[in-house]
Design a protein around this nucleic acid. Structure first.
Lengths: 193, 193
DNA sequence: CGGCAAAACCATACATCGCTCGGTTTTCAT
DNA sequence: ATGAAAACCGAGCGATGTATGGTTTTGCCG
């Protein structure tokens, strides 16, 4: 009943774990990163780390959730001339944090399994993004920048899919420019030949 | 020096392993499938199975390589009125073998790590597909079906990316129609508004 | 045939993994 | 100051992928 919150030291440590874990993954790669290594990197035992995140998968999910918060706060909400520029900015930013991209790709793929603890998180995430991008397209249609005959929902899904799929291609061959390709897709959609 | 080939029994068993493994993965999911389970399913010990595939990852890579052979032989090479229809057919076929799609998504993502044994395989695979789809687009441009001003290579990459990304969305929400969305992207590219 | 090298296959063991359990130490509101 | 909860640990459990050193089976060659 008398539930007490986290101590100051606890919340700081939790934050330290999140940022340090991302560093370790970026350096060692997702596959070779174990809970023991992550615990060592922040000066904890494995059991000590698992006091904060009850499983490895929960820790990873939390890293990605934090990334989403930073991204939507820093890029998407800005008052840009063209709202889609915020989307491009996120993608450009991603190519500077390959460890995060790798982590995202790996976890989101694993979470396709309905039994995965982060399954619901990603289902919800994609639905949110579909909604946001769908209204973005509809706004551009209303503004006369996109042919109103086009299907906004399908276009939204295609953009999310292209962004995801380009990550795979970029990780396999970093000379692939993700933002450039997504911008070209936008050009394909907005062109009025 | 006197290297002898596989016995008849061996090649049959190898084939049985490939098909059975795919069944098991489709039923249990990629995450919950262990080498011991796969070995049991074909009546072998773990060591017996690893005589054919020196590692779990090599086995999975071999399943995907075989899938590619079947797909390109059965769909792409056909003399279709519109060659891109072969591409759509593969995607439609994929939605009937969710286990394979899950396996492909998982392994291709893991193989983004340069140290992964299947890394070179996937780098090569994507380069091949980029080439094939690029010439497909250029052919359509020559035939007057696609605006010759458009960048065939970028479009090819976008199609591969969309196909990959739609797999994630489809696995998270099977009501997403992958083939329909890719066909819509084709419509976006071929339209001459 | 018969022999014999290589393929097919197994029992066992090992290191590492994520995670649990029972405990001790540290924090901090009262 | 005190006591309850948070912070943290040592030890260990079950499962995993894989290496080792062997035995059995196959099928080419003389």
């Amino acid at each position: 009943m008398a539930r007490r919150g986290s101590y100051a030291k606890g919340v700081a440590k939790r934050e330290e774990i999140l940022t340090t874990a991302l560093d370790v993954i970026a350096r060692n790669g997702y596959r070779r990163t174990s809970v023991r290594e992550l615990a060592d990197a922040v000066g904890l035992s494995q059991a000590g780390l698992l006091h904060y995140f009850s499983s490895k998968e929960e820790l990873f999910q939390e890293i990605l959730r934090k990334r989403d918060e930073v991204d939507t706060g820093g890029f998407v909400d800005n008052d840009l001339e063209h709202p889609v520029e915020g989307f491009f900015a996120v993608i450009r930013h991603n190519s500077e944090v390959p460890g995060l991209v790798q982590l995202y790709a790996q976890v989101s793929t694993e979470a396709c399994d309905p039994d995965h603890p982060a399954h619901a998180f990603f289902v919800d995430r994609y639905n949110q993004f579909r909604g946001v991008f769908g209204t973005l397209v509809r706004d551009e249609q209303a503004a006369g920048n996109i042919d109103p005959e086009l299907d906004a929902d399908r276009i939204a899904n295609l953009f999310l899919a292209a962004a995801d799929g380009l990550q795979t291609q970029w990780m396999l061959d970093p000379s692939i420019d993700m933002a450039d390709h997504v911008a070209y897709l936008w050009q394909l959609v907005t062109r009025k030949a």
